[in-house]
Design a binder for these strands. Structure first.
Lengths: 222, 222
DNA sequence: CGATGTGTTGACCGGGTTCAAACAATGTGG
DNA sequence: CCACATTGTTTGAACCCGGTCAACACATCG
């Protein structure tokens, strides 16, 4: 069984949960709310954002089916970020205390939760690595690679990826300005590592993902 | 009771654990080892580092008493980073499977573990925020602030902080070069936000931590 | 003592930001 | 349907922060 199904299966079998259908832009959770629920993505894509006091918004994470949203609330007791659907989506909402209670009899439940948190940490570290050792072009390339591989893992199409983020959001996520993102896109297309789907600049095709991996590798900074 | 004591108290009361005394430089865990244990810092300071395939080392995190080390192994099943004592330290090592087993009867145990993971994620996000919005000087200032506050939280002296990291390691941790770290130090001393303890360049005093906070705030980038 | 590791400082350079202008896509109301 | 506003994207030019390379100042230690 694929890893991403584990959480869904376990929740479905052992937990009461609330199905929530969402359209693009709908909110999953709001930063500051007292934490009591976790959200498991059943399908679609969720974007989480942190809002600084001065109004600056930062993209915190992107979540596909099988991913958990809301984990960062466990420590503090309130949600740390806003969560929005980037697309028509469904999330399963479960109460944290119920999960712990039922987890006492179903250890696998606790373990998938731990795995999810561990994966989150691993992703953060990878991001940090990219930030420290990759120039802008390679960071964008690596972002697209990881996104494509996340889709592939879930048996979704990767030959025509629809980015549901603006250039500004991508840049925000990768730690660079939107102009730099745009230029990096242009350069990657120029060397044939990417291709835009006609005029729709948010549809990207990756002709050869191995070439993309090799490109990122080749640009790792000493 | 202070937050950092929770884990220590709970472990002490409910779990079998192995006390390990360490001297500066001793290893706590090695990247790649199959994961089965978590380590709780009882005193001292632990530094974790990830090693890239090409030999490049990156500082992943710093851990004081009450902090957990090894959480990132839960997801993958093997340790993701090396852990070293930066100082004379003691860690309590517990088996993860035992923690889960006993946790079935002591829910607080499970919860402190979750809290620890959540805190880790929160720190990672803060780091990301700093990376994206603070120039080099302010990043260093913010790093020293957070270190000082971590010490204060544990009733340790903050008027004469001993950095147990080289300029290169600090830079590595903050995403900048050692020369930039050095220059940033000089500038912060120049404006009176920091003071070196005589000739020992690794002993830093923070005359007014609020001023440091204000400085960081004032340099947040739009 | 020289050797080695660490820290500071200067000069130069370059990748990415900033500012600005123009264009494309989409929507809105008359 | 078109005029117009709005939002997102691309591209150019100038600038600047931080990286790079290099020299030097200290410590500590064999």
């Amino acid at each position: 069984m694929r890893r991403w199904r584990e959480s869904l299966n376990l929740i479905e079998r052992h937990m009461p949960f609330l199905r929530r259908s969402l359209h693009a832009g709908d909110g999953v959770q709001t930063a500051g709310d007292t934490f009591d629920c976790l959200h498991l993505v059943y399908f679609g894509a969720i974007k989480t954002m942190v809002l600084a006091a001065d109004g600056y918004q930062q993209v915190a994470g992107l979540h596909l089916k099988g991913d958990w949203v809301g984990l960062d609330g466990i420590a503090t007791g309130y949600s740390a970020c806003d969560g929005y659907a980037m697309d028509t989506s469904e999330v399963w909402t479960v109460r944290y205390d119920e999960l712990l209670r039922i987890g006492e009899h179903v250890p696998e439940l606790v373990h998938v939760l731990h795995t999810a948190m561990g994966n989150q940490m691993a992703r953060d570290r990878e991001w940090r690595f990219a930030q420290a050792r990759l120039p802008a072009d390679a960071r964008l390339a690596d972002f697209l690679r990881s996104w494509a591989q996340a889709l592939a893992l879930r048996d979704m199409r990767t030959d025509d990826i629809t980015l549901r983020l603006t250039r500004a959001e991508i840049g925000n996520y990768l730690g660079m300005r939107l102009e730099t993102v745009s230029r990096s896109f242009s350069r990657l297309v120029e060397v044939g590592l990417l291709a835009f789907d006609d005029k729709r600049r948010r549809h990207v095709a990756i002709p050869d993902i191995n070439a993309l991996v090799a490109y990122v590798q080749s640009r790792i900074h000493p």
